[in-house]
């Protein structure tokens, strides 16, 4: 098993945190992995991307030209990267900021209005978790329950107040993806 996931969005959307959370969860699940970020110097408003390769053996290249899957958090991410998803792969797209028009017919596309859902749940900042929930439900790469447990591990205790919102966002994303797949 080798799965690559590329994540992109604007700075402040939690692209890197979503990637690190999935990476840490994969480690807890006993898998091998490599995660690396590329981002512009701005804290907010710049572009942020990360690539995560998860494997049950040697990871090999952390750099991937055509990733098997992507999580694209806004319209610019879709415009810049959707064409690089490997044919037969998967893209999870934030339709709140990118629309849900299917621009490719040779990949699976899961469109979730993640920013709207996150706002309903109490914080737009949980957009990344809605998308991650949808991604994990679609790929079954790791157990959803394990992601929730890992959140408690990687977030400093002073941020544990935010975890219920994040967990709700993960679950809602997973639920919507499951409905789309049916």
């Amino acid at each position: 098993m080798r799965q690559e996931v590329f994540m992109a969005g604007m700075g402040g959307q939690g692209v890197l945190l979503a990637g690190q959370l999935l990476a840490q969860t994969a480690l807890e699940a006993g898998l091998e992995l490599s995660w690396f970020p590329l981002y512009s110097p701005e804290v907010r408003g710049g572009r942020a991307t990360c690539t995560l390769v998860i494997a049950d053996g040697e990871v090999g290249s952390p750099v991937v030209g055509q990733p098997g899957s992507m999580i694209l958090m806004d319209g610019i991410a879709v415009d810049n990267h959707l064409n690089r998803v490997r044919p037969g792969g998967l893209a999870v797209v934030n339709s709140s900021l990118a629309g849900d028009e299917v621009k490719r017919d040779d990949i699976d596309l899961v469109a979730v209005a993640a920013t709207d859902i996150a706002a309903e749940l109490g914080s737009e900042r949980a957009t990344n978790m809605v998308l991650l929930g949808a991604y994990v439900a679609t790929t079954e790469l790791v157990e959803e329950q394990l992601i929730e447990e890992t959140l408690y591990r990687i977030l400093p205790e002073r941020h544990h107040d935010y975890i219920p919102t994040n967990v709700a966002a993960l679950q809602r994303g997973a639920q919507l993806a499951a409905e789309q797949l049916r």
Binding site: L27, E32, S34, W35, F36, P62
Partner: peptide
Amino acid sequence: AVLASMREP
């Protein structure tokens, strides 16, 4: 720069 910022077990 990739090896510097990448995370691995």
